[in-house]
């Protein structure tokens, strides 16, 4: 794909899962980078021609349930396993993980990681911190009732207190924090680079 310095990433189209949560924030971030986005709410919206997909923050129990009821779990899992790039934040990380340490559910199960839900406790445990994300640099990370990764076979891009909070496995990018809640577009831009096979 061509990159036009003024218009951003040309011809890239990402599907943003819009079942519940902060999907609009992701759309706006990608649109600022010049990426076209479409919302996926139904099975019929998950079509060919997407260069990548995004799983936003929100409540993983709600999103997982709606994905299951809509018959989206299997086709999306298959597409990710066939190499469709995916970017998941917070609830998105939980949906991608192949094991949850404090919850019996597994959703897509494509990311080699054991994830702990609500790992920092309730809302009083939510926090913001600057951390170094490999491939991105210093980044303001916002954690909202966030999970962390207890163990993973994926490449760890960032950690907090010894726990992985950003990982990459081939074309899967997942963070426990919310880059979509800041004005900093570098993690989104990094995902575009993954989609284009640049990194």
């Amino acid at each position: 794909m061509l990159r036009n310095p003024l218009r951003g990433v040309l011809n890239m189209k990402l599907g943003i899962f819009a079942l519940q949560g902060a999907f609009l924030e992701h759309r706006l971030a990608f649109e600022k980078l010049g990426v076209r986005t479409v919302e996926i709410r139904r099975r019929a919206h998950f079509t060919d021609g997407l260069d990548g997909i995004v799983l936003p923050g929100g409540e993983s129990t709600v999103q997982g349930k709606l994905l299951r009821e809509e018959g989206l779990l299997y086709p999306v899992k298959e597409a990710i396993e066939s190499g469709l790039p995916v970017f998941g934040t917070c609830a998105g990380l939980i949906l991608l993980a192949d094991r949850l340490s404090n919850d019996g559910n597994v959703y897509f199960g494509v990311l080699r990681a054991t994830v702990k839900r609500n790992a920092y406790g309730r809302q009083l445990g939510s926090f913001r911190t600057d951390l170094t994300v490999r491939g991105v640099g210093e980044f303001p990370a916002v954690f909202i009732r966030a999970p962390y990764i207890e163990e993973t076979g994926a490449e760890v891009l960032a950690s907090v207190g010894g726990k992985a909070v950003a990982v990459r496995q081939d074309k899967i990018l997942a963070t426990a924090f919310h880059p979509e809640l800041t004005d900093d577009l570098r993690v989104h831009s990094y995902f575009c680079d993954i989609v284009r096979g640049k990194v």
């Binding site: 819009a18 079942l19 519940q20 949560g21 902060a22 999907f23 609009l24 924030e25 923050g57 929100g58 409540e59 709600v62 917070c90 609830a91 809302q123 939510s126 926090f127 913001r128 916002v142 909202i144 009732r145 919310h178 809640l181």
Partner: peptide, 18 residues
């Protein structure tokens, strides 16, 4: 101020929900 932002952010995560 951080706290207020984080609290606003939690509401953002509830959007589209019941």
């Amino acid at each position: 101020n951080d706290r207020f932002e984080l609290n606003k952010n939690l509401a953002q995560m509830l959007k589209g929900g019941v």
